[in-house]
Every structure is written in structure tokens, then in C-alpha cells.
Nucleic acid binder design. Structure first.
Lengths: 340, 340
DNA sequence: ATGAAAGCGCTAACAT
DNA sequence: ATGTTAGCGCTTTCAT
């Protein structure tokens, strides 16, 4: 344990300050000296104490990542992307999983980030005024993915545009009765993504109804909680309606999976009886032949990582949000409606 | 920023030492004093500097979690479980994602854990002698899930037993020609779990062959890389065999999903033409009506978290590995073979 | 029960 | 280019 800086200094025959400089690659150290220091450090198996270094510099070499649910495909993918680029830069990642509103409250009450991180990454979580202030009060760069916050850099996709494209695909196939599976207020943790997709759904579906000169079916908007079972239930509700949609747009692939199951159980065929369109391009979407909107999840994470690194070095320059491209992936779950 | 301990001390009218004691709940502080200190700290919005505290005590309030792939269902689930119990105890989680052999090598070369963590958790990764020594040299408790290492506490399941149970289920249904989709050496990152399941497969399948007085089909053992597409390919290989298995045991649900797809594409029905049995009880197994071996993944994580906490307080007492229960979940993908 | 003082191991001026 | 000297903000003897 007592592998202190001074031991290295003694072995290399220089002062502690020089060792510190040499080890950090700071300019102003003769080549020969640096080599000797490095050799001595290696021989002693020496590594600086992050705590001491952090106390002296104020930097921690760590970024905090705040995530709603680590174990959801989308988030774990992003984390993986972020971690990759951060670790290449020698930065460690402190993970905070919120889980639910209670967890979120506890997190902001205890606020374990104070002085622990050099920067913070927030995933898909719209911040309250107070939370944002608290985060910003750390004096550390803040970056978000999936949301935009004043004072933070962000990466995301054009949720609205992508959802509109998805809906239009359904309309172009000839569907006029389109159901939606997503989230109906109140949305857990205050997510806004579901709302943006719902807005896009309405925009397109209502326009279709207007053309046809009839009122939109209010019952076509269902909540699936972004889970498979929730999607299954929602589809069940849709199927129970007097006028049944010929197509369904689910705001996540997981809910779409649930919808597929409900359909299968009801003895209905996809896409013959009902078309289903998802969102995400989940790993298993191909398996289930689900047509969906693909978003570059890993890239979102990597980009966020790069943003973090940039802010960490060149101070905090706020840029406009980076918008990554999505694309419609057509598989076997969408087709023109059958005339009945 | 300059919310130092001394400010609180001044406001409370006591010394810094007393503030430190009061804040940590150390005994030996008068009730009234403690109350005043707490009030002062609250008023100032004070929180201790982890770096300073860590430098003084040697403790970091952090545990390092080493995981092969964060974005695989199984691992993200475990992480979620660990995080939950750790954060309740006020411990933060430093995440290290290995990814592949190169990442693993880099990790152990740089070894970013030194002095950063109070304990280490390793998921499913069999350690080399050197790696284990390196980890143990941290002088911090080590716990593992899914593997056993000398000097470490561990949680896991009875992989072999569970796989044997799974295989026997197939045999009891009447299957004599059973294929395996798993991993064939060399296994990425040196995982041993696939090997244990393979061994169980052989044990049962070979016994069946012996009874029937014939040699086991060597071609029945295929590698699916623990991914959907790998499982799909493996099933394709199996289907190309002269003598085709009537049932398949996949060492993970994801590979089983791939097998289901290959079967569907080949125009074969499950379980009518081929039975498929998975392992894990993945979130989507129910969706696909996959029979499988359920293992309590979240609980594995929570148990690991508790083990970590225990070691952190009562010093390191090594216990025998905790084995959590698995159970066979029968859904629609397994049935007696059809006589052809 | 409380305070004074000496570090914990490093980095950052300031000298030289 | 290198060394000296102060801290960074806390915890922990040791006194009182």
C-alpha cells in the first residue's frame, strides 16, 4: 500500500513534484528524467491515489450517469456506448439508477454526486426546475440524451419527425383507422418522449379523419407502459373497441411485441388482419418481423460520451442539440389493410 | 463551493472535529451539539468532500462492478439489482464494461480500480490467476456472481443441475435425438457457464444414446455465441444434419429465440416438428411461448449487493457460495416428439 | 464531550 | 528543468 509518490521520487532520484509532472505528462520535464520516473513507477507498481489527486486538483476523473432504468434495452445500450468512449479517455463512470419517482426523490435529496464527478450525463429524463438547478450547481458540464435542458449539451433524435414518418407509412399503405400504444398521462418519471410520439400520432391520424370527414376515435389512444405486457393489454383494449383499428403504431418495440402477442392470442394475423409498427429497432425486432423506426442507440451513447469529453477539456461551450438520424425499417408486420 | 467543514463548525459554534463526528453519527457527541451541527450543515447545504474524506480514511464509499457486457439482458438485470441495494446503503457504483478480450486486457493493464473502490464485484467472468491476484491485491473484498474464485464470496445458480433438469424434461417427453446450442470452445472472455451447460447436455444425451445402443451424434453440439443470430445459424446447422434432432436445448433464451426463427423460416412448427427449450427466462420468453429454465436474475444482483455490504462491514468472512433456485417454466415450445 | 494538531497523498505556485 | 513549500478538506489521535 505505501506506494507513495515519494518512494518513486527517491528511487528516481528526483523530487515529488517532478514525479507528479512526469506521470501526468505535463510539459517541462526532460525526456531522460521522465523515462527514469516512469521506470521507477513501473518498478514499484505505483499508481496515483485518485482521492489525493482529486483533493489537490478538484478533478475526479469520473462522470456520473443518471439513468431511469439500467435494465431496459434502450438505456443499457446507451450506457454501453458512453462507457466505451469514456474509458478510452481514462474516465470512470459512476452509475445511478433511478427506478421510480421514489428513487428519483431520494437521489436528489441525497445527491451523491456532489464533488464526486467532473460531469453529469442524464438519460431521457426531463428535469424539474429545481433538479436542473441542483445539477448545474455542481459547476460541472451537463449533457443529456433524449431531452433538452437549458445549460446542457444534448444528443437525441427527431422523435416527432420519426413518428410522423412512421404514421405516414401506415397511411400510405391505405390505413385510415390507426391505433396508438404509448403512454397516457401521467407518464412515469415525467418522460416526454412518449408524449412527442403521441403528438405525432395525433397529427397524422387526425388529418386522416378530417379528410374522411369524421371524428377521431378517442379510444384509439392507449397506454402500454413501455413494457411487453402493457403493450399486450393495450392491444387487448383496442381489439375490444366497436370500431377496430386496421393498424397500430406502438411507441416502443417492446409494446409492439406485446401487441403482436395479443393479436396472436386473439387469433388475428399480422399483417393480414392488423398491421403493427414499432419504434426503436430492438435487438429482437428482426426476430419477430416487426416493422419499426430504427434509432441509433449505441451511437447516441457514444456521441454523448464525446460531448462529455469535449466539455471536460474545452470548457463548456453550449452547442445546439445533436440530432442523429432515424430510419424506417420495413419488415413483415405492416401491409395494406384487407378490405372487409 | 467553499462549503467547508470549518464553516459549519463556526456556524454551530464548535470545532471541526466535532462537526466531523456529529455528521458521521459517531458516538461521543452530546445530543444537543449534534442537533446544532446538523442544523448548521443543513443551513449551509453542506456535504462532505468524498475525496478529502477518502484521503483521510482510506475508504471511498464506492464499489467497482466489472461486467462483460452491460447491454445484455442478463447483466443489466443484475446490475440493476446490485445498484438498488448498494444505493440504499449510500454506496456508489463504478461501472466497468469489458466488452471483449481487448477491453479486458486494457482494463487489467490500466487497472482503474486502484484506490478507487472499497470492494469489487465481478460478473460471470472466470479470472486468470494473475487477474485474481491483481484484484485481491486491492485488499478489498471481492464477490463474484456466476463463478467461484478462491478468496471471493459468490452467488450463483446450480448451472449443471438446472441444465440436467432441462434435458431430462426433454427425455421424459420422449425425445432421444436432442441437439445443443451453446458455445463451443474457445469461449469468448473464457466464460465457463456455457461449458457447464454443455456438460449437462452431454451427460443426459449420452446416457440416452447408451440406452439405445448407439453413438451420440457429434454434430448435435453447436455454437450460437449467446446471440439471437448465432442461435439462428446454429439451428440452421442442426437442420442440415442427415439425422435431425427432434428437440433442441439452447443454453440461453436469446439463442433459443434465434432457433425458433430458423425453424419458422424452414417451415417447421414448434413444438410439433421440433421442441425448443431455453435457459434464463428472458423478459420475452413468455411472448414467444418458450419453455425455459428460469433463474432469478434480479435476485442474484441483490444478493451480491448484500454480500458486498456484509463484507464491507464485518470484515471479510468467506462463506460457501450462495446458490439460488432455478425452476423449469413450461410453455408451448416443448412437447412429445411426433412419430414420423 | 470537545478541541488542537498532525497528517492522508497529491498538485500548484513560487523559486531557483 | 527541477525543487520547496503550501495547502486541498477531511479524520483521528491525543489532550483536556
Amino acid at each position: 500500500m505505501p506506494d507513495k509518490l515519494d518512494d518513486v521520487a527517491r528511487l528516481a532520484g528526483v523530487s515529488a513534484a517532478t514525479v507528479s509532472r512526469a506521470l501526468r505528462g505535463v510539459r517541462g520535464v526532460a525526456e531522460g528524467t521522465r523515462a527514469r520516473v516512469l521506470a521507477a513507477a513501473a518498478e514499484l507498481g505505483y499508481a496515483v491515489s485518485p482521492a489525493a489527486s482529486s483533493l489537490a486538483t478538484g478533478r475526479t476523473g469520473t462522470v456520473g450517469v443518471i439513468v431511469p432504468y439500467v435494465d431496459r434495452w434502450y438505456f443499457s445500450r446507451i450506457i454501453s456506448g458512453v462507457e466505451r468512449v469514456l474509458r478510452e479517455a481514462g474516465i470512470s463512470l459512476l452509475l445511478y439508477n433511478l427506478g421510480d419517482d421514489a428513487g428519483r426523490a431520494r437521489f436528489f435529496a441525497e445527491f451523491p454526486l456532489r464533488r464526486r464527478v467532473d460531469a453529469v450525463l442524464v438519460l431521457s429524463l426531463p428535469l424539474s426546475e429545481a433538479e436542473r438547478a441542483q445539477l448545474l450547481s455542481l459547476g460541472a458540464p451537463l449533457v443529456t440524451v433524449g431531452t433538452e435542458e437549458p445549460g446542457a449539451d444534448s444528443v437525441g433524435i427527431d422523435d416527432h419527425g420519426a413518428a410522423v414518418t412512421a404514421m405516414r407509412h401506415l397511411v400510405q399503405l391505405g390505413h385510415r383507422e390507426i391505433g396508438f400504444i404509448g403512454e397516457t398521462a401521467p407518464v412515469p418519471l415525467g418522460f416526454t418522449t412518449p408524449l412527442r410520439r403521441l403528438a405525432a400520432y395525433r397529427e397524422v391520424y387526425h388529418a386522416v379523419c378530417r379528410e374522411d370527414g369524421r371524428a377521431p376515435e378517442a379510444g384509439f389512444e392507449t397506454g402500454g407502459g413501455f413494457t411487453v405486457s402493457g403493450g399486450e393489454q393495450a392491444m387487448g383494449t383496442l381489439l375490444g373497441l366497436p370500431r377496430r383499428p386496421s393498424a397500430v403504431f406502438a411507441a416502443s418495440d417492446e409494446m409492439a411485441f406485446g401487441a403482436l402477442r395479443a393479436l396472436r392470442r386473439a387469433g388475428l394475423r399480422v399483417p393480414h388482419d392488423v398491421s403493427v409498427l414499432g419504434f426503436d429497432d430492438h435487438d429482437l425486432a428482426g426476430l419477430l418481423e416487426l416493422s419499426t423506426v430504427a434509432q441509433p442507440v449505441a451511437e447516441l451513447g457514444e456521441h454523448a460520451g464525446r460531448l462529455l469529453l469535449a466539455r471536460l477539456s474545452d470548457g463548456k461551450i453550449l452547442t445546439s442539440p445533436a440530432i442523429l438520424r432515424t430510419r424506417l425499417v420495413l419488415r413483415g408486420s405492416t401491409a395494406p389493410p384487407t378490405t372487409r
